[in-house]
Computed example of a mutant assay.
Amino acid sequence: MDVQSRELTVTYKIVPPPSTVAPSSLSQETTHRFPIIPLPGLESKEDDDSLKKYYTSLRASIAEARTKLGEELTAWRDAVGNAELGKEKSVKAEADDEGEEEENTEE
C-alpha cells in the first residue's frame, strides 16, 4: 500500500508600510506546513475508521494553522500600529463620495 504524507500548507506575504518596525521573530514571507495523517488506500474494510482518523487529523491541522496564523498576523497588526488607519478612512471616504456623485447625477 503506497501511503503519501499529506500536509496543509499556508503561505503569506506581508507588505507593511515602510515605517513599520517589525520584531525579528516576524518574517514578511512565511510558509507553514501542518502534517495530516496519511489516508490509507480505500481497498480495506477499515474505510470508515480510516476516514474518521483522517478527518480528525485534518481538523486538528486546520485548528493549528488558524492559531499560528492568528498569532503571527496579530503581531504584524501590532507592529504596523496606526500606520494603516488613515489609509482605511481615505478608502471609505472615497466610496462615500462616489455614492453621493451618483445620487447627484440622477437628479
Rank of each mutant, 00 (worst) to 15 (best):
A95T: 10
K92G: 01
E94M: 05
T56A: 14
E94F: 08
E7Q: 14
G81R: 11
Y54L: 04
P18M: 07
L69F: 01
S50N: 15
S25K: 11
P17C: 08
D48R: 05
N104I: 03
D2G: 06
S27K: 15
L39Y: 03
V80G: 05
N82W: 03
S5K: 14
E94S: 07
H32L: 15
A95D: 03
E71I: 08
K13L: 13
L42S: 14
A95N: 03
S27N: 14
P35R: 14
V80E: 04
T20F: 04
A75P: 04
Y54T: 00
D97V: 04
I62A: 00
T11V: 08
A65S: 15
G99Q: 12
T105F: 11
H32D: 12
S44F: 02
S90Y: 11
G81A: 04
K53Y: 05
D78S: 13
Y54D: 01
V91E: 14
E102W: 06
Q4T: 12
Q4A: 11
P16S: 07
P17A: 14
D2E: 10
M1D: 07
W76S: 03
L8N: 03
V80A: 04
E71Y: 05
Q28Y: 11
T67V: 09
D2T: 10
S57A: 01
N104Y: 05
T56Y: 01
T105L: 15
S24M: 01
E103T: 01
K89H: 11
G41N: 08
K89N: 09
I37K: 07
E98H: 06
T74P: 00
Y55C: 03
T67K: 15
E94P: 00
W76A: 00
K89G: 11
Q4W: 09
I62D: 02
Q4C: 06
P17I: 03
T31D: 06
G86H: 02
R77S: 11
A65W: 13
S50M: 00
A95I: 08
A22F: 02
L42W: 02
V3S: 05
D49F: 13
T31Y: 09
D47Y: 07
Q4M: 06
V10P: 03
S90C: 03
S90W: 06
D48H: 04
P23I: 04
P17Y: 05
S90M: 13
T105A: 06
T31E: 12
E71K: 12
S57F: 00
L39K: 04
P23F: 02
E102A: 09
L8H: 02
N82C: 07
T67E: 13
V91M: 09
K87E: 10
E7M: 07
S24Q: 03
E43I: 13
K45L: 10
E64L: 10
G99I: 09
Y55W: 11
E29D: 09
S61I: 03
D48V: 15
E29H: 12
F34V: 11
Y55F: 15
Y54N: 03
T30C: 07
D49K: 15
K87Q: 10
P23G: 02
S57C: 05
A95H: 01
T30G: 01
R66C: 08
R59D: 11
E102C: 00
A93E: 14
S24L: 04
E88A: 15
T31A: 07
E88I: 14
G81Y: 12
E7R: 13
V80F: 00
D97P: 00
I37R: 07
T74I: 01
T56L: 05
V91S: 07
V80T: 09
K92C: 04
T67M: 10
E7H: 07
E64H: 09
S5H: 13
P35Y: 09
